[in-house]
Write a protein that binds this DNA or RNA. Structure first.
Lengths: 224, 224
DNA sequence: CGTGAACTTGACTTGCTTCAAGGTGCGTGG
DNA sequence: CCACGCACCTTGAAGCAAGTCAAGTTCACG
């Protein structure tokens, strides 16, 4: 379970916390097909824990342009208690398996002393999300298509590793080039050409949805 | 005082909170010249309350490119307790007057029941900052130079109004076109040309540092 | 098989950058 | 008081990264 992995890596869970998480695991799982809208922009959302699949937070302009603000990967938690309306829609980019995260968030918010590792881990996750937002701003503002893509892929590798979902330097990426473009402020055509250039330069290989990073060092250098 | 104004607008202060704020106002003010580095990237920062002047959070790439991640306007609070290292540097874009914000943040964090309006206001401010980050991502990812500039100026107007620093539809903007460019992912030259086009289109007037918005409606429409 | 979504490739266009050369306002020191 | 330097703004010309349009190709799936 990616969340356990992520929390466990960060902190040692207390017995009470282990119980809470085990109880969570017995909750019913919610399945959602690719392309589903988990909730539209401007609505308050029930918090959810992503077990598997990739989603995103996105904003739409009046003329249909779409900006993917951030990606949601397995182990991520979306929303908060109490739920607040957000200007971002949440979309499923692949089939998703979700768990209600309200018990988790409530426990951490209302009894931080009883669930110390959990609440610290959740605060750290929120902090990390903030850093990713700022990284995204740097990418979009200053970097070339080549650098943006490198940075994004490096970020995926790092996040999936933390969730135990990377196999060495490779991982499954259930994204269309269109979605990548909408996140990176590029056209899908240009994403395509840039990926090809990276393959030609020996940075990576693509086998269907599988991304194999051949030169992680260069990737990180490009990302800055 | 911009902070009082912003907090007061949002919430009614309790007597205890009024006392705390009055005590703060008796603290020594820290003055900082334009172009100063309040603290470099990667260092933990003491939290500060900005009384006057404009600053920014910025990140630098190895080759010198600079991305201004967010602007700090009067009434804004930077940093947290306990201080945490951040990948962003904090810079003064004009002369600044600062106050130590540690007492404020500590009070809100440790005695939320005694300072309810204050802690709610600070949470709301953090939330608002988050929204601005996402807006910035949409701007950089999807919008043209013209739209980006419109959105940024609309945001300035709105934020300065909340701080009581806008005079109708005009405000003082102590920014170079270079700084605007570094925030919007544009060259200073292009910021210049775009501003001229806005003037020609009757969107705004510039008189030195004074920005006079002539058509706030159009500005907001462009921003999306 | 057929159908649609995603990926690929080529030709052309464009928004923005870069480079370069002034112009302007202002503080500072002779 | 003037001259100098410096930071900032303005304008023109040329180049380029990325977008758009359009025509396939590949592949998964019913």
């Amino acid at each position: 379970m990616p969340l356990l992995r992520r929390l466990g890596v960060l902190e040692q869970l207390s017995p009470d916390e282990v119980l809470l998480v085990q109880e969570l695991a017995r909750q019913p799982v919610r399945d959602v097909p690719a392309r589903a809208v988990l909730h539209p922009a401007g609505q308050a959302a029930a918090p959810a824990l992503l077990l598997s699949g990739w989603g995103c937070r996105a904003r739409f302009l009046l003329d249909g342009r779409r900006q993917i603000v951030s990606f949601l990967l397995p182990g991520d938690v979306t929303g908060q208690v109490p739920p607040l309306p957000s200007p971002c829609a949440v979309l499923a980019l692949s089939p998703l398996r979700l768990l209600d995260a309200a018990p988790l968030l409530l426990a951490a918010a209302e009894q931080p002393l009883r669930f110390p590792a959990l609440s610290r881990a959740l605060r750290a996750a929120a902090q990390a999300e903030d850093v990713l937002l700022r990284n995204q701003i740097v990418r979009l503002g200053q970097q070339t298509a080549y650098e943006r893509l490198a940075g994004m892929l490096a970020e995926f590798l790092q996040r999936l590793r933390a969730a135990g979902l990377a196999d060495g330097d490779s991982f499954a990426m259930p994204l269309t080039q269109d979605a990548l473009g909408d996140a990176l402020g590029l056209s899908a055509v240009h994403v395509n050409r840039t990926l090809q250039q990276m393959r030609r330069n020996g940075l990576l290989e693509l086998r269907g949805r599988l991304v194999v990073i051949r030169d992680p060092e260069a990737l990180r250098r490009l990302a800055g």
